[in-house]
């Protein structure tokens, strides 16, 4: 076939395209993912029972700020990474900011506490539940985010996959925070941060397979 013939065929009845489609799909994916993560947490695990105490409210708020910050920063980058060449114009350092912040806060709070408390502060009561729940809750949000990115055309599939995983992990943490009763900054930094990083790595590994076009 001659290239001219292909161009002629493609130029017949050209449909106008929606330039906002990429961002709109990502927006839909974010909303759906967050709703699913919160829904799954509430149905499978239940809301934390001690929400009446001010300490619980403060820590819930802190966890949510961390999770929302992660999702927000990662989503901004993902919106660029989803488009061809998007990886050339970004320095994804900003996405690490929530992690740096929580690690600093964790270090400060460990520094202020006597070392005999450290074990409890880091491991909490439910570290295993957290380690398992966040990746599991992240599966459906991850699928939805991947669907959205597939509406576009990422040219760096590893990085687009990693940021999809990061966004999904953050959304999952948002949901899980509603259930989790371990209120210490080192716990949040290690187990929330760690599982979200795990989701990011899984996304980076799956990206080239799921996002090819």
């Amino acid at each position: 076939m001659k290239t001219d013939e292909l161009i002629t065929a493609l130029s017949v009845n050209v449909e106008p395209v929606n330039r906002r489609l990429v961002n709109r799909s990502l927006g839909i994916a974010l909303a759906t993912g967050i709703a699913v993560a919160i829904g799954m947490t509430l149905v499978a695990l239940g809301l934390r029972v001690d929400l009446a105490t001010p300490r619980a409210v403060i820590f819930l708020f802190l966890k949510l700020v961390f999770a929302i910050g992660t999702v927000g920063a990662a989503a901004v980058y993902l919106a660029r990474l989803a488009r061809p060449g998007g990886e050339q114009r970004i320095s994804p350092g900003l996405a690490a900011l929530p992690f740096v912040a929580i690690l600093l806060l964790a270090a400060v709070s460990l520094g202020q506490a006597p070392s005999s408390h450290w074990d409890m502060m880091v491991m909490g009561d439910q570290w295993l539940e957290c380690l398992i729940s966040i990746p599991i809750i992240a599966i459906v949000p991850f699928a939805v985010v991947i669907w959205a990115v597939r509406q576009a055309a990422p040219t760096n599939l590893v990085r687009a996959g990693a940021f999809s995983g990061l966004v999904a992990g953050g959304m999952s943490a948002m949901g899980y925070a509603l259930h989790c009763t371990d209120d210490s900054l080192p716990f949040v930094a290690l187990w929330y941060g760690g599982t979200i990083v795990l989701c990011t790595l899984a996304g980076a590994m799956l990206g080239p397979r799921l996002l090819r076009w």
């Binding site: 395209v17 929606n18 330039r19 489609l21 990429v22 989803a82 488009r83 061809p84 060449g85 998007g86 050339q88 114009r89 576009a152 055309a153 040219t155 076009w213």
Partner: peptide, 21 residues
Amino acid sequence: QRHTYDPNEPFTPWVHAIARY
């Protein structure tokens, strides 16, 4: 993929990224 081009960004890198991919 013509819908993935963002008019606020330069055009050549977009084409080049597709060609390279």
